[in-house]
């Protein structure tokens, strides 16, 4: 009975094709990695684009400093600090400032009392 063993020789063509597939795999892997890094780099671009949108809106405004806003001056003069523009006035403190952490319960009590007096 015959037993046919496998071949052991490696022809030039076989070698080239074998290594070719390995090389192609490695190159393809590299290309995919590069693609990945490109996507990575582009994935955050929208943030800068949105920010630039805001900066160009800013540049197109005639008024670009908060203290020049006429309605800001108006609210101080008519409401927050009658007669002048004085930030940190009593009313501004009451409406526009807050407290943090452990001081909050005290602040809430204060605000509730205030609205009682007003009512």
């Amino acid at each position: 009975m015959n037993t046919f063993q496998e071949k052991t020789n490696l022809t030039r063509r076989q070698f080239l094709r074998g290594s070719g597939v390995l090389a192609a795999t490695a190159i393809l892997g590299g290309i995919l990695a590069k693609f990945g890094f490109n996507v990575q780099a582009r994935s955050q671009e929208y943030i800068a684009q949105r920010a630039n949108g805001l900066y160009s809106l800013d540049e197109r405004m005639t008024l670009r400093k908060s203290h020049e806003n006429p309605e800001i001056l108006q609210i101080y003069k008519e409401f927050l600090s009658p007669g002048g523009v004085t930030p940190l006035s009593e009313k501004a403190h009451h409406l526009l400032h807050t407290k943090y952490g452990d001081e909050i319960p005290e602040l809430i009590a204060e605000l509730k009392q205030h609205s009682h007096q007003a009512a």
């Binding site: 949105r50 920010a51 805001l54 900066y55 809106l57 800013d58 540049e59 197109r60 405004m61 008024l63 670009r64 400093k65 908060s66 020049e68 806003n69 006429p70 309605e71 609210i75």
Partner: peptide, 19 residues
């Protein structure tokens, strides 16, 4: 709307870091 609706460029850039 006016009254508490007008703004300056300084306020616009609040939306970006460093604004």
């Amino acid at each position: 709307d006016r009254l508490i609706g007008s703004s300056t460029g300084a306020a616009t850039i609040f939306g970006a870091t460093g604004g």
